[in-house]
Design a protein around this nucleic acid. Structure first.
Length: 562
DNA sequence: TCACCATGCGCC
DNA sequence: AAAGGGCGCATGGTGA
């Protein structure tokens, strides 16, 4: 059973309507003055698939008042985007209003900029959904949903259709989870974070915005070592000039270039940049903005990356420096289960391409070691560099011989990524395993000023797009697997409880999950993660000898995991 | 003054 | 000859 749900623009109410599996109404709209209660009752009775314009507008605001977590949903906006890509209309507006307008032959409104809310209390307002004035929101939800189900049924080839439906379901499960993680937050010990910052940067400046003492001292040391007048170390041009004045030519201030420079100021400069970045990106200002009340609450953007990876908005959730993970500490009586997929992308390549030889190296624990043993005389570093280079489209850096070896030993795997690259160079589109389609060539890829190179098809930008599509099939299919993992894990975690407390996912970063759990459930959670990983592999890749093992740690502190 | 771009670096 | 994918964010610098 399915249930359409729309919240009222203001207040705690909304409307529901039961639907059959084809999306046809099973009854009239049901007004719900207290939406959370009505939803909880329906969930208990039917556990339907909830259909709404977007999870962040319909589910997110409901969470505080909702006594249960909902099992399944169909997010119209995310599904619309997936369908549009598949139908060759990548990037067309995907709001409820846009989908409704296409259905009715009306002018299609452009999407609002991501994250731009009209105003605080306009969060659920119909205008955010871009519906034409006077349109009944519930009617639009029901109609667009039914149409999406028809479009899903129209995907040719039964296997591709089944996989694409899985993608739609997993993407929607991700939307539920993203709302829940934003609501629950990642445990963040402000005092530990403070101590860490103080240790590295000196005491917290009394006046916010002023430079911490250790940064100021380092700046002076750099200037002294260069015998320079005071200059702004945060300005590339001033730094390059200061070094040039001492006869050190820099083409940039990148740390790898500074590290290769033989001058005492260079090392100091590198240290300054490291600390300065920490201060700017994850210092006290960041803490005040994002990590108050013992929780870091980032906003995740499901499908925010074209490959299907998630993005985040505000707080740099997916770029927390490793050193800062020390501040992520489980609540008393709770633990963190940290699990990350070991060498996900090469395993994805092995499973996608069906390369029997590569699959053998991916049947056990350390893929790179197995690869090294069979093709690189045991040199693990070479094996890793070569395989990563093949997946990213790298050709320089002395990697040529490694690629030749791989091409000889693993022709199917290398052929797979090379075919994807050729498709991209020729202007075509490629898909992930579950059927997420990459964007077509855009103006970015068409550099008309580029000089055509003799005897070669396509120029620099064509090859750049080839590298993009080459990587898309891997990164996108890895994201498919991760979404399936999340959905499976979320379902398994919902079945666990200890004295009314439940484990919940608190962090997800491409191929890594963190579960915050009552301590006595930690082993059960670890087992659930392992089971979910296997389920994801079977769902996404079917019958494959490739294993997708996880490295799992049960810890008090995120910084202690691996 | 504001919007935008370039640089550089954190994560995968 | 050389040629590495995807992001978000802070800062300085530029031009309208």
């Amino acid at each position: 059973m399915r249930y359409a749900l729309v919240p009222d623009p203001h207040g705690p109410g909304g409307r529901l309507q039961p639907l059959d599996e084809e999306g046809a109404p099973l009854g009239p709209p049901e007004p719900a003055p207290r939406l959370a209660e009505a939803v909880a009752a329906v969930e208990a009775a039917h556990a339907p698939r909830w259909v709404w314009p977007t999870a962040d507008t319909a589910y997110g605001p409901l969470l505080a008042a909702l006594p249960v977590r909902l099992a399944r949903c169909h997010d119209l906006r995310l599904t619309e985007a997936l369908l549009l890509g598949r139908e060759g209309r990548f990037g067309a507006p995907r709001s409820l209003g846009a989908a409704w307008s296409r259905l009715r032959g009306l002018p299609v409104p452009a999407d609002l900029p991501e994250g731009a809310l009209p105003d605080e209390d306009g969060l659920f307002a119909p205008d955010r959904l871009q519906l034409p004035p006077g349109t009944d929101q519930l009617e639009a939800v029901v109609a667009v949903h039914a149409e999406q189900l028809r479009r899903l049924a129209a995907v040719p080839d039964a296997e591709a259709r089944a996989r694409f439906r899985l993608l739609v379901a997993a993407e929607s499960a991700g939307a539920l989870l993203a709302c829940e993680m934003a609501h629950d937050g990642l445990p963040w010990r402000t005092d530990v974070h403070d101590a860490l910052l103080t240790e590295l940067l000196g005491p917290r400046p009394a006046i916010p915005g002023t430079q911490p003492t250790k940064l100021a001292e380092l700046a002076l040391e750099v200037q002294r070592a260069l015998g320079a007048r005071p200059f702004n170390l945060d300005s590339h041009t001033q730094v390059i000039k200061a070094f040039a004045d001492r006869g050190v030519q820099l083409s940039s201030t990148r740390s790898w270039e500074l590290k290769s420079v033989d001058h005492p100021a260079a090392a100091l400069m590198v240290r300054y940049k490291e600390l300065s970045r920490l201060h700017a990106a994850h210092g006290w200002a960041w803490q005040a903005a994002w990590a108050r009340g013992g929780r870091f609450r980032p906003e995740y953007v499901v499908g925010g990356v074209v490959t299907g990876r998630w993005a985040s908005r505000g707080g740099g959730a997916l770029q927390i420096p490793r050193t800062m993970r020390r501040a992520v500490v489980a609540d008393p009586g709770w633990l963190l289960v940290v699990a990350d997929a070991a060498q996900l992308e090469p395993r994805v390549l092995a499973a996608l391409s069906g390369d029997a030889g590569l699959a053998r190296t991916a049947a056990g624990g350390d893929l790179y070691a197995a690869l090294a043993a069979s093709a690189f005389q045991g040199d693990r570093e070479k094996a890793k560099l070569g395989l990563l280079g093949a997946m990213y489209g790298q050709t320089g850096g002395g990697i040529g011989p490694l690629l030749s070896t791989l091409r000889r030993r693993y022709p199917a795997a290398m052929g797979y990524v090379e075919a994807a690259a050729r498709t991209g160079e020729d202007g075509g589109v490629v898909s992930s395993r579950l059927g997420r389609v990459c964007p077509p060539p855009s103006a970015d890829w068409l550099d008309l000023t580029e000089a055509p190179e003799s005897g070669e098809a396509g120029g620099r930008s064509a090859r750049a797009r080839g590298r993009f599509t080459r990587n898309f099939v891997i990164q996108g299919s890895g994201a498919d697997w991760a979404l399936a993992l999340l959905a499976a894990l979320r379902r398994r975690l919902a079945a666990l409880s200890s004295g009314g407390d439940r484990p919940h996912l608190v962090f997800f970063q491409h191929d890594e999950v963190v579960v915050h759990t009552p301590a006595d459930l930690a082993d059960a959670v670890a087992a659930a993660v392992a089971d979910a990983a296997e389920e994801a592999a079977a769902l996404v890749f079917g019958d494959t000898p490739v294993r997708f093992p996880l490295t799992t740690a049960v810890v008090d502190c995120y910084g202690d995991a691996k």
